[in-house]
Design a binder for these strands. Sequence first.
DNA 1: CGTGTTTGACCTGCGC
DNA 2: GCGCAGGTCAAACACG
Length: 349
Amino acid sequence: MDPWIGSQPSLSLDLHVGLPPLSRHQAPVAMAKPKVLVEENFLQPLKKEPEVAALETELQRMGEENRRLAEALTAVAAKYEALRSQYTGMVAAGVTNNPSSTSEGGSVSPSRKRKTSESLDTAAAPGAQAQHPPQHGLQNGGQQQPGLADQMECTSGEPCKRIREECKPKVSKLYVHADPSDLSLVVKDGYQWRKYGQKVTKDNPCPRAYFRCSFAPACPVKKKVQRSADDNTILVATYEGEHNHGQPPPAPSSQQQPHDAKNAAAKPPSPPRPAAPAAAPQSPDHPQQLLHHHQQKQQPQQDAVAASELIRRNLAEQMAMTLTRDPSFKAALVTALSGRILELSPTKD
DNA sequence: CGTGTTTGACCTGCGC
DNA sequence: GCGCAGGTCAAACACG
Ligand SMILES: [Zn+2]
């Protein structure tokens, strides 16, 4: 997971400084050049004059300095890694502590629907915290800085009533080709979804269906499905959040939705509500309609890759900054550079 | 009887 | 403050 942690920083260092490396990858390359150069100088000039000796000493010193820096950097990297894993662990622990996220917790007031204050309290606090951390830990790592920061602030002191925006970790869109004849708004993606609402939006005559992942009780993932206003044959599924469980039924046969038969059978023949699309007459185990797959955030894998790249950059920058600030590093750098310059510039006979 | 869908009401954010 | 629009809830209903 964090192999890059060691290589990345050194990489940027190499690029900018031409310093000796600590990482196993770049090390050979970066080190090889200067070293070869130096050694040539040593081997070829047969006469070891005092100047040469001085240079040699200097070089040795530089080497040591470099080594020291390398060790320091390694230490920093290790530290970072430790902290990171620590953070991940904490996050995970927090999740497991209140697995009963969502608004199910507590007394369901018999009085009609939600009472703002109550549901707000119960739902906002545990729900919000339980949702995101896991994702950051597992895939994100730190992609969503703002969310992370806000969370920290919230947990530390702020009431943090509504972290709406921050609460939307991942939003991805899925375009599914569907026959316009079937009015279903069901997108087969391997998960179990429970419909909890439907709404007619303004800019689209077709209603929008709201689904919630029902595979895992605490899964925060929601999905909106709406037929494209432009192309009736296209369903636009918008996913929010990430599943806190694996892909449920990889089983090719009788995929999921044990109750699916009812939908498929009941709707098409004589729908009581011609205007209301509702459930899916689609074949349950044949997502053959899945055609396009545009996503803003992409699938977990690509997502993770993108995230890790981002992290790499950040880390590299941090490392570089840290080193840049270090006076001893600067001194070493100057020494190294001047040494190189001296080495190269002298008129070779 | 348990589970999932339907659907009107309610909540909330946003623009005016 | 008001109205609108999107999002959510939960009672009622349907189905196996
Ligand atoms: Zn899920």
